[in-house]
Design a binder for these strands. Structure first.
Lengths: 118, 118
DNA sequence: CAGTATCCAGAGCGATACTG
DNA sequence: CAGTATCGCTCTGGATACTG
């Protein structure tokens, strides 16, 4: 559910309190391309343990950013997806992706003179 | 300076590796409005300790996001500011601020059933 | 398959004291 | 004022084992 304590903070702090975590951002990146199963998320996010992935998924579910659908099957199948609220975070992730591309390009070019383009 | 290991990661991971931290985002928010002294940052960012603030400032300085200018005065004065690179992060912080505003408004509306009569 | 439960090492942080 | 150094403690997070 949605907690109220964030409301006392500034907008940036509100956002930071929900997605500041490294893994949450990467989970968002994964889910922006569509619904994913638990195993797909674990495989898609390099370096995350099952425990930490589960913890973050639960936290994001509690915050209303992602949804979780459990299929009553054997073997079990659980799908995660962005809620409408989660989808509104897309511009932030897009901005981060775009910046990351620019940064990577800059680092590649900065081997000689990184003050050339100003 | 700029490390190269981030280049092996996807763009989002690159960005996350530099500003995923809660405090770094808030430091950016502070510095987006201009140069700040150490004490101003400490006062402006609620809940951060001197040690953690220093650690994050050093890390961001190493990443080339912020600059640090020491005045040879007594008492000492140290100013922090965004580098050109740091300034390019502005769209991300702006996106987070905008999202935070929308989220706060949404939470307020979702609670109106409870606070209908006031 | 997708978890939960438990244990444990280590990072991270606060508090404190000291320095240029 | 703006740090650095050190000491404990907390609490995250990895590894492992077990379950619906």
């Amino acid at each position: 559910m949605i907690t109220k304590k964030e409301l006392s903070l500034c907008p940036v702090e509100t956002t930071v309190s929900l997605i500041s975590n490294k893994w949450k951002t990467l989970i968002l990146r994964e889910l922006l391309s569509g619904t994913k199963r638990f195993g797909e998320l674990r495989n898609g996010i390099s370096g995350v343990s099952q425990k930490v992935l589960t913890q973050n998924l639960r936290s994001m579910e509690d915050d209303g950013i992602i949804g979780r659908k459990v299929y009553a099957e054997v073997p079990p199948r659980v799908e995660y997806f962005l809620t409408d609220l989660g989808n509104t975070l897309r511009p932030i992730i897009d901005a981060m992706a775009e910046w990351g591309l620019g940064y990577q390009a800059m680092v590649n070019n900065s081997n000689e003179t990184n003050v050339a383009s100003r």
